[in-house]
Protein backbone atom coordinates (compact mmCIF):
# COMPACT_ATOMS: atom_id res chain seq x y z
CA UNK A 1 0.00 0.00 0.00
CA UNK A 2 1.41 3.36 -0.96
CA UNK A 3 0.40 5.72 1.76
CA UNK A 4 1.73 9.22 1.39
CA UNK A 5 3.62 10.89 4.22
CA UNK A 6 1.57 10.78 7.40
CA UNK A 7 -0.63 13.86 7.62
CA UNK A 8 -0.36 16.15 10.62
CA UNK A 9 -2.44 14.97 13.59
CA UNK A 10 -4.63 18.03 13.42
CA UNK A 11 -5.70 20.11 10.53
CA UNK A 12 -5.34 23.83 10.95
CA UNK A 13 -8.88 24.31 9.62
CA UNK A 14 -10.45 22.20 12.37
CA UNK A 15 -10.31 25.11 14.78
CA UNK A 16 -12.94 26.89 12.71
CA UNK A 17 -15.57 24.47 13.95
CA UNK A 18 -15.62 26.33 17.24
CA UNK A 19 -16.09 24.94 20.71
CA UNK A 20 -19.77 25.89 20.91
CA UNK A 21 -20.72 24.08 17.72
CA UNK A 22 -18.78 21.00 18.81
CA UNK A 23 -20.62 20.97 22.14
CA UNK A 24 -23.95 21.45 20.38
CA UNK A 25 -23.63 18.17 18.52
CA UNK A 26 -23.00 16.30 21.78
CA UNK A 27 -26.32 14.58 22.38
CA UNK A 28 -26.16 14.81 26.17
CA UNK A 29 -25.56 18.55 26.36
CA UNK A 30 -29.23 19.54 26.40
CA UNK A 31 -30.13 17.10 29.14
CA UNK A 32 -27.14 18.18 31.23
CA UNK A 33 -28.23 21.82 31.06
CA UNK A 34 -31.82 20.72 31.75
CA UNK A 35 -30.79 18.67 34.80
CA UNK A 36 -28.78 21.56 36.22
CA UNK A 37 -31.67 24.00 35.70
CA UNK A 38 -34.22 21.65 37.27
CA UNK A 39 -31.94 20.99 40.24
CA UNK A 40 -31.28 24.70 40.80
CA UNK A 41 -34.96 25.51 40.46
CA UNK A 42 -36.15 23.05 43.10
CA UNK A 43 -33.12 23.51 45.35
CA UNK A 44 -33.97 27.21 45.59
CA UNK A 45 -37.64 26.48 46.29
CA UNK A 46 -37.10 23.76 48.89
CA UNK A 47 -34.48 23.04 51.53
CA UNK A 48 -35.55 19.43 51.82
CA UNK A 49 -34.95 18.91 48.10
CA UNK A 50 -31.23 19.56 48.50
CA UNK A 51 -30.87 17.75 51.84
CA UNK A 52 -29.34 14.24 51.91
CA UNK A 53 -32.73 12.62 52.48
CA UNK A 54 -34.19 14.66 49.66
CA UNK A 55 -31.43 13.58 47.28
CA UNK A 56 -31.93 9.92 48.27
CA UNK A 57 -35.64 10.38 47.62
CA UNK A 58 -35.37 11.71 44.10
CA UNK A 59 -32.51 9.44 43.12
CA UNK A 60 -34.72 6.43 43.84
CA UNK A 61 -37.36 6.88 41.09
CA UNK A 62 -34.59 8.17 38.81
CA UNK A 63 -32.66 4.92 39.25
CA UNK A 64 -35.27 2.41 38.11
CA UNK A 65 -36.43 4.67 35.28
CA UNK A 66 -32.77 5.29 34.45
CA UNK A 67 -31.86 1.61 34.06
CA UNK A 68 -34.72 1.23 31.60
CA UNK A 69 -34.09 4.55 29.86
CA UNK A 70 -30.49 3.56 29.13
CA UNK A 71 -31.57 0.30 27.45
CA UNK A 72 -34.39 2.08 25.62
CA UNK A 73 -31.92 4.76 24.47
CA UNK A 74 -29.66 2.15 22.87
CA UNK A 75 -32.70 0.69 21.11
CA UNK A 76 -33.80 4.13 19.93
CA UNK A 77 -30.31 4.92 18.65
CA UNK A 78 -30.69 1.62 16.79
CA UNK A 79 -33.76 3.13 15.18
CA UNK A 80 -36.52 1.25 17.01
CA UNK A 81 -39.15 1.73 19.71
CA UNK A 82 -40.34 -0.68 22.35
CA UNK A 83 -43.79 0.11 23.68
CA UNK A 84 -43.84 -3.18 25.59
CA UNK A 85 -40.90 -2.15 27.80
CA UNK A 86 -43.05 -0.92 30.69
CA UNK A 87 -45.45 -3.81 30.84
CA UNK A 88 -42.55 -6.28 30.59
CA UNK A 89 -41.31 -5.07 33.99
CA UNK A 90 -44.72 -6.17 35.33
CA UNK A 91 -44.45 -9.51 33.53
CA UNK A 92 -41.02 -10.07 35.10
CA UNK A 93 -42.25 -9.41 38.65
CA UNK A 94 -45.46 -11.39 38.21
CA UNK A 95 -43.65 -14.42 36.76
CA UNK A 96 -41.21 -14.53 39.67
CA UNK A 97 -43.91 -13.97 42.30
CA UNK A 98 -46.38 -16.51 40.90
CA UNK A 99 -43.76 -19.20 40.28
CA UNK A 100 -42.48 -18.95 43.87
CA UNK A 101 -45.70 -18.46 45.84
CA UNK A 102 -48.05 -20.64 43.75
CA UNK A 103 -45.80 -23.21 42.09
CA UNK A 104 -43.23 -23.28 44.92
CA UNK A 105 -40.21 -22.94 42.71
CA UNK A 106 -37.00 -21.86 44.40
CA UNK A 107 -36.67 -18.09 44.11
CA UNK A 108 -33.53 -18.27 41.98
CA UNK A 109 -35.15 -20.71 39.56
CA UNK A 110 -38.24 -18.54 39.32
CA UNK A 111 -36.06 -15.54 38.62
CA UNK A 112 -34.18 -17.45 35.93
CA UNK A 113 -37.45 -18.50 34.27
CA UNK A 114 -38.66 -14.91 34.47
CA UNK A 115 -35.43 -13.76 32.80
CA UNK A 116 -35.90 -16.32 30.04
CA UNK A 117 -39.49 -15.15 29.51
CA UNK A 118 -38.39 -11.51 29.29
CA UNK A 119 -35.54 -12.21 26.91
CA UNK A 120 -38.03 -14.25 24.85
CA UNK A 121 -40.33 -11.24 24.63
CA UNK A 122 -37.42 -9.10 23.45
CA UNK A 123 -36.41 -11.70 20.89
CA UNK A 124 -39.93 -11.97 19.49
CA UNK A 125 -40.22 -8.17 19.27
CA UNK A 126 -36.89 -7.88 17.48
CA UNK A 127 -37.44 -10.86 15.21
CA UNK A 128 -40.88 -9.69 14.11
CA UNK A 129 -39.64 -6.16 13.44
CA UNK A 130 -36.72 -7.35 11.33
CA UNK A 131 -38.64 -10.08 9.58
CA UNK A 132 -41.72 -8.08 8.64
CA UNK A 133 -39.92 -4.71 8.29
CA UNK A 134 -43.00 -3.16 9.83
CA UNK A 135 -42.47 -0.18 12.14
CA UNK A 136 -41.51 -1.36 15.63
CA UNK A 137 -44.10 1.07 16.93
CA UNK A 138 -46.88 -1.19 15.60
CA UNK A 139 -45.25 -4.52 16.42
CA UNK A 140 -44.50 -3.59 20.03
CA UNK A 141 -47.89 -1.92 20.42
CA UNK A 142 -49.25 -5.37 19.65
CA UNK A 143 -47.01 -7.17 22.14
CA UNK A 144 -47.70 -4.40 24.68
CA UNK A 145 -51.46 -5.02 24.51
CA UNK A 146 -51.03 -8.78 24.51
CA UNK A 147 -48.77 -8.69 27.57
CA UNK A 148 -51.12 -6.31 29.33
CA UNK A 149 -53.94 -8.80 28.79
CA UNK A 150 -51.78 -11.78 29.75
CA UNK A 151 -50.53 -10.12 32.94
CA UNK A 152 -54.07 -9.46 34.13
CA UNK A 153 -55.72 -12.57 32.72
CA UNK A 154 -53.18 -15.18 33.82
CA UNK A 155 -52.74 -13.59 37.24
CA UNK A 156 -56.50 -13.73 37.83
CA UNK A 157 -56.80 -17.29 36.54
CA UNK A 158 -53.91 -18.56 38.68
CA UNK A 159 -54.30 -16.54 41.87
CA UNK A 160 -57.93 -15.32 41.75
CA UNK A 161 -56.67 -11.84 42.62
CA UNK A 162 -54.92 -9.03 40.80
CA UNK A 163 -52.05 -8.87 43.26
CA UNK A 164 -49.41 -11.46 44.14
CA UNK A 165 -47.64 -11.17 47.49
CA UNK A 166 -45.85 -13.22 50.13
CA UNK A 167 -42.55 -13.47 48.32
CA UNK A 168 -40.67 -12.27 51.43
CA UNK A 169 -41.27 -15.58 53.24
CA UNK A 170 -39.57 -17.56 50.44
CA UNK A 171 -36.16 -19.10 51.08
CA UNK A 172 -33.20 -17.12 49.71
CA UNK A 173 -35.29 -13.94 49.80
CA UNK A 174 -32.71 -12.28 52.04
CA UNK A 175 -29.89 -12.90 49.55
CA UNK A 176 -31.97 -11.62 46.66
CA UNK A 177 -32.92 -8.62 48.77
CA UNK A 178 -29.25 -7.83 49.29
CA UNK A 179 -28.62 -7.78 45.54
CA UNK A 180 -31.76 -6.05 44.31
CA UNK A 181 -33.25 -4.02 47.12
CA UNK A 182 -30.80 -3.32 49.93
CA UNK A 183 -29.71 0.17 50.87
CA UNK A 184 -26.33 1.76 51.32
CA UNK A 185 -26.06 4.23 54.16
CA UNK A 186 -24.10 7.37 53.43
CA UNK A 187 -23.99 10.20 55.91
CA UNK A 188 -26.69 8.53 57.99
CA UNK A 189 -29.06 8.42 55.01
CA UNK A 190 -29.92 5.09 53.34
CA UNK A 191 -29.67 5.09 49.53
CA UNK A 192 -31.33 2.40 47.42
CA UNK A 193 -28.84 0.02 45.82
CA UNK A 194 -30.73 0.44 42.51
CA UNK A 195 -28.90 3.77 42.25
CA UNK A 196 -25.61 1.85 42.05
CA UNK A 197 -27.01 -0.49 39.39
CA UNK A 198 -28.27 2.52 37.47
CA UNK A 199 -24.78 4.03 37.40
CA UNK A 200 -23.31 0.65 36.39
CA UNK A 201 -25.89 0.33 33.60
CA UNK A 202 -25.09 3.82 32.31
CA UNK A 203 -21.35 3.20 32.30
CA UNK A 204 -21.67 -0.19 30.61
CA UNK A 205 -24.10 1.10 27.99
CA UNK A 206 -21.92 4.12 27.24
CA UNK A 207 -18.90 1.90 26.91
CA UNK A 208 -20.67 -0.49 24.57
CA UNK A 209 -22.06 2.35 22.49
CA UNK A 210 -18.88 4.35 22.05
CA UNK A 211 -16.05 1.85 22.42
CA UNK A 212 -17.13 -1.41 20.81
CA UNK A 213 -17.89 -2.68 17.32
CA UNK A 214 -21.39 -3.45 18.45
CA UNK A 215 -21.80 0.20 19.43
CA UNK A 216 -20.75 1.25 15.95
CA UNK A 217 -23.37 -1.10 14.52
CA UNK A 218 -26.07 0.37 16.78
CA UNK A 219 -25.45 3.85 15.33
CA UNK A 220 -25.30 2.37 11.84
CA UNK A 221 -28.54 0.38 11.83
CA UNK A 222 -30.30 3.37 13.38
CA UNK A 223 -28.80 5.85 10.93
CA UNK A 224 -29.33 3.92 7.71
CA UNK A 225 -30.15 0.24 7.84
CA UNK A 226 -29.67 -0.37 4.11
CA UNK A 227 -26.30 1.33 4.05
CA UNK A 228 -25.14 -0.70 7.03
CA UNK A 229 -26.32 -3.95 5.43
CA UNK A 230 -24.41 -3.02 2.26
CA UNK A 231 -21.14 -2.85 4.20
CA UNK A 232 -21.74 -6.11 6.05
CA UNK A 233 -23.22 -5.02 9.40
CA UNK A 234 -25.40 -7.83 10.81
CA UNK A 235 -28.47 -5.62 11.09
CA UNK A 236 -30.90 -8.30 12.20
CA UNK A 237 -28.68 -9.60 14.99
CA UNK A 238 -27.91 -6.08 16.18
CA UNK A 239 -31.56 -5.07 16.36
CA UNK A 240 -32.70 -8.28 18.06
CA UNK A 241 -29.92 -7.90 20.65
CA UNK A 242 -31.09 -4.36 21.38
CA UNK A 243 -34.68 -5.50 21.91
CA UNK A 244 -33.40 -8.24 24.21
CA UNK A 245 -31.33 -5.64 26.06
CA UNK A 246 -34.49 -3.67 26.78
CA UNK A 247 -36.43 -6.72 27.95
CA UNK A 248 -33.43 -7.84 30.02
CA UNK A 249 -33.37 -4.44 31.71
CA UNK A 250 -37.14 -4.77 32.24
CA UNK A 251 -36.48 -8.08 34.01
CA UNK A 252 -33.94 -6.40 36.27
CA UNK A 253 -36.23 -3.50 37.16
CA UNK A 254 -39.28 -5.77 37.58
CA UNK A 255 -37.29 -8.06 39.86
CA UNK A 256 -36.02 -5.10 41.87
CA UNK A 257 -39.57 -3.94 42.41
CA UNK A 258 -41.03 -7.30 43.40
CA UNK A 259 -38.17 -7.94 45.85
CA UNK A 260 -38.39 -4.45 47.28
CA UNK A 261 -42.17 -4.32 47.68
CA UNK A 262 -42.54 -8.11 48.31
CA UNK A 263 -45.70 -8.02 46.20
CA UNK A 264 -46.67 -7.06 42.67
CA UNK A 265 -49.85 -5.75 41.07
CA UNK A 266 -51.09 -7.31 37.83
CA UNK A 267 -51.17 -3.87 36.19
CA UNK A 268 -47.63 -3.04 37.28
CA UNK A 269 -45.55 -1.17 34.71
CA UNK A 270 -48.41 -0.04 32.44
CA UNK A 271 -47.73 3.36 30.96
CA UNK A 272 -44.08 3.46 31.98
CA UNK A 273 -42.91 2.72 28.43
CA UNK A 274 -43.62 6.32 27.47
CA UNK A 275 -41.67 7.53 30.51
CA UNK A 276 -38.60 5.66 29.30
CA UNK A 277 -38.95 7.02 25.80
CA UNK A 278 -39.39 10.56 27.14
CA UNK A 279 -36.26 10.18 29.28
CA UNK A 280 -34.29 8.92 26.27
CA UNK A 281 -35.55 11.78 24.08
CA UNK A 282 -34.77 14.39 26.73
CA UNK A 283 -31.35 12.75 26.79
CA UNK A 284 -30.84 13.60 23.12
CA UNK A 285 -32.03 10.47 21.29
CA UNK A 286 -33.53 11.25 17.91
CA UNK A 287 -36.91 9.62 17.24
CA UNK A 288 -35.57 8.69 13.82
CA UNK A 289 -32.57 6.81 15.24
CA UNK A 290 -28.85 7.00 14.66
CA UNK A 291 -28.13 9.61 17.28
CA UNK A 292 -28.24 9.78 21.05
CA UNK A 293 -26.42 8.82 24.21
CA UNK A 294 -26.73 6.56 27.23
CA UNK A 295 -25.49 9.25 29.60
CA UNK A 296 -28.11 11.60 28.19
CA UNK A 297 -30.90 9.09 28.80
CA UNK A 298 -29.67 8.73 32.38
CA UNK A 299 -29.77 12.49 32.81
CA UNK A 300 -33.28 12.42 31.34
CA UNK A 301 -34.27 9.91 34.02
CA UNK A 302 -32.63 12.14 36.63
CA UNK A 303 -34.72 15.10 35.44
CA UNK A 304 -37.74 12.82 35.76
CA UNK A 305 -36.87 11.84 39.35
CA UNK A 306 -36.05 15.39 40.40
CA UNK A 307 -39.22 16.85 38.90
CA UNK A 308 -41.56 14.20 40.32
CA UNK A 309 -40.22 14.62 43.87
CA UNK A 310 -39.35 18.31 43.59
CA UNK A 311 -42.94 19.26 42.92
CA UNK A 312 -43.97 17.52 46.12
CA UNK A 313 -41.19 19.23 48.12
CA UNK A 314 -42.12 22.60 46.68
CA UNK A 315 -45.59 22.02 48.09
CA UNK A 316 -47.35 22.05 44.72
CA UNK A 317 -50.09 19.82 43.50
CA UNK A 318 -48.45 16.81 41.83
CA UNK A 319 -50.72 17.36 38.81
CA UNK A 320 -48.17 19.92 37.65
CA UNK A 321 -45.64 17.15 37.16
CA UNK A 322 -47.10 16.12 33.82
CA UNK A 323 -47.12 19.69 32.59
CA UNK A 324 -43.45 20.13 33.46
CA UNK A 325 -42.56 16.90 31.80
CA UNK A 326 -44.45 17.75 28.64
CA UNK A 327 -42.75 21.14 28.42
CA UNK A 328 -39.35 19.50 28.93
CA UNK A 329 -40.06 16.96 26.22
CA UNK A 330 -41.09 19.64 23.74
CA UNK A 331 -37.96 21.67 24.47
CA UNK A 332 -35.85 18.55 24.06
CA UNK A 333 -37.28 17.51 20.68
CA UNK A 334 -37.01 21.06 19.37
CA UNK A 335 -33.35 21.30 20.30
CA UNK A 336 -32.70 17.77 19.00
CA UNK A 337 -34.21 18.83 15.70
CA UNK A 338 -31.76 21.71 15.42
CA UNK A 339 -28.85 19.43 16.24
CA UNK A 340 -29.88 16.96 13.61
CA UNK A 341 -30.23 19.64 11.00
CA UNK A 342 -26.76 20.84 11.81
CA UNK A 343 -25.31 17.34 11.74
CA UNK A 344 -26.92 16.43 8.43
CA UNK A 345 -26.43 19.76 6.78
CA UNK A 346 -24.45 19.46 3.62
CA UNK A 347 -21.81 21.96 2.65
CA UNK A 348 -21.97 21.43 -1.06
Amino acid sequence: MTIAAAPPATDERVARTGLLRRLLVKPELGSLIGALLVFTFFAVLSDVFRSTSGVANWLDPASTIGIMAVAVALLMIGGQFDLSAGVTTGTAGLTTAILTTHYHLVLWVAMAVSLAVCLGIGFVNGYLVMRTRLPSFIITLGTFLMLQGLNLGLTKVITDTVSVGGISSEPYYETAHKIFASTITINGQPFEIAIVWWIVATVVASYVLLRTRFGNWIFAVGGDVNASRNVGVPARRTTITLFMGVSGAAWFVGTTQVIRLTSVQANSGFGLELTYIVAAVIGGCLLTGGFGSAVGASLGALIFGMTSQGIVYAGWDSDWFKFFLGAMLLLAVLSNQLVRRYAEQSRR
Binding site: N216, W217, F219, A220, G223, S228, G290, R340, E344
Partner: peptide, 24 residues
Amino acid sequence: VYQDLAMVPLMAVWRNFFLGSEPT
Protein backbone atom coordinates in the same frame (compact mmCIF):
# COMPACT_ATOMS: atom_id res chain seq x y z
CA VAL B 1 -19.71 2.08 -4.46
CA TYR B 2 -23.43 2.60 -4.77
CA GLN B 3 -25.18 5.83 -5.54
CA ASP B 4 -26.57 5.85 -2.02
CA LEU B 5 -22.99 5.25 -0.90
CA ALA B 6 -23.50 2.84 1.96
CA MET B 7 -22.63 5.55 4.42
CA VAL B 8 -24.53 6.71 7.46
CA PRO B 9 -24.87 10.50 7.39
CA LEU B 10 -25.03 11.05 11.15
CA MET B 11 -21.88 9.04 11.87
CA ALA B 12 -18.34 10.40 11.96
CA VAL B 13 -16.15 9.84 8.90
CA TRP B 14 -13.83 7.42 10.72
CA ARG B 15 -16.76 5.40 12.10
CA ASN B 16 -18.19 5.13 8.60
CA PHE B 17 -14.86 4.24 7.09
CA PHE B 18 -14.57 1.08 9.19
CA LEU B 19 -18.29 0.30 9.43
CA GLY B 20 -18.79 -3.45 9.28
CA SER B 21 -15.02 -4.14 9.42
CA GLU B 22 -14.04 -2.42 12.65
CA PRO B 23 -10.52 -3.07 13.93
CA THR B 24 -10.52 -4.35 17.51
